[in-house]
Design a protein around this nucleic acid. Structure first.
Length: 279
DNA sequence: CCTTAGACCTGGAGGC
DNA sequence: TGCCTCCAGGTCTAAG
């Protein structure tokens, strides 16, 4: 489901609800949910652990517990809900794959229609970025490490489309299909441009656009499309600020050209060919 | 090392 | 109503 801004809003909500609360029991019902150990072992490890700190890295959530780091990736449709009671509606219930009972009597529920999401648990470390889960994950899009110089260096030898590079989490972590289109529109670059053709100036435009758009979206509560919500009725309004994504055949807000839908990297991609330069 | 096609899953929307 | 195809905020992998 979510990209960095939506994950950040999920994190903020969970921190507010869970900080200093203890997990009293755990039941995982989808064996594949636990990525780095048997799911019964993960149930055992998380039981009686208390939530202390909350971090986001790219699209990953990191929960620092007593002596564990718990990493969660929501992929396409993962959601955390906090409820007084477990929902009885079978249409909802069948997609709940983990239940965490809390010391305040509430339930933290993990729901995921498509079952793509994964969780990992590691012994706690002071530098969570050194965890194996982040071996192939680059700097966060909103961190100072993600600079024009850094990006240009990463891009100079690649010949795939620039959009494919922005979706590559080992280059920069946190950008997904919606914001990649919006960032490239703002930077005035066609998503199909050959990555290595971009110069340092282009990279500066991309980095500036990425930081500006994503931080604006964090403030707006993220993007909520196709009636997705990402928590307990958690939704954002950044969809009202989108300039190209899902706007094929509409008039470009910058040049009055027509926005087109094309396929890049097997993903739907929206572009104004009139004002986004193809390099 | 880089790139790309296919796999992993389910449900909603639209065509017939 | 039923069946079919396509589509979806993501990432692994296998193979070239």
């Amino acid at each position: 489901m979510p990209e960095a801004p939506e994950v950040q809003n999920v994190l903020n909500y969970l921190q507010e609800q869970l900080q200093n609360h203890k997990i009293t029991s755990v039941e995982i019902s989808h064996p594949k949910l636990s990525g780095n150990m048997d799911y019964h072992e993960m149930e055992k490890k998380l039981t009686n652990q208390t939530f202390h700190k909350f971090f986001r890295h790219g699209k990953y959530l990191v929960f620092e517990l007593d002596d564990l780091d718990w990493i969660s990736h929501l992929r396409m449709e993962g959601k955390f809900l906090i409820e007084d009671k477990i929902p009885e509606d079978p249409k909802i219930n069948k997609h709940i794959h983990a239940k965490f009972h809390l010391d305040n009597g509430k339930w933290l529920l993990y729901m995921d229609t498509r079952k793509f999401g994964r969780m990992q648990v590691y012994p706690r470390t002071e530098d969570y970025y050194s965890l194996p889960a982040f071996d192939k994950v680059g700097p966060d899009v909103l961190s100072d490490q993600f600079s024009a110089k850094y990006l240009h260096n990463k891009l100079k030898n690649r010949k795939c489309a620039i959009k494919t590079s922005l979706l590559n989490q080992s280059i920069v972590a946190g950008i997904g299909n919606i914001y990649a289109d919006e960032i490239l529109f703002d930077a005035g670059l066609d998503p199909r441009s050959i990555t290595s053709h971009l110069d340092l100036e282009d990279c500066k435009k991309i980095v500036d656009a990425a930081k500006q758009i994503l931080s604006e979206s964090v403030k707006s509560g993220g993007t909520t499309i196709r009636s997705f919500e990402y928590g307990n009725h958690l939704s954002g309004t950044y969809q009202d600020s989108l300039k190209v994504h899902q706007k094929s055949e509409e008039i470009c807000s910058r040049c009055h050209g027509t926005i087109e839908k094309v396929i890049v990297n097997q993903r739907s991609t929206y572009v104004c060919p009139a004002c986004q330069i193809r390099k």
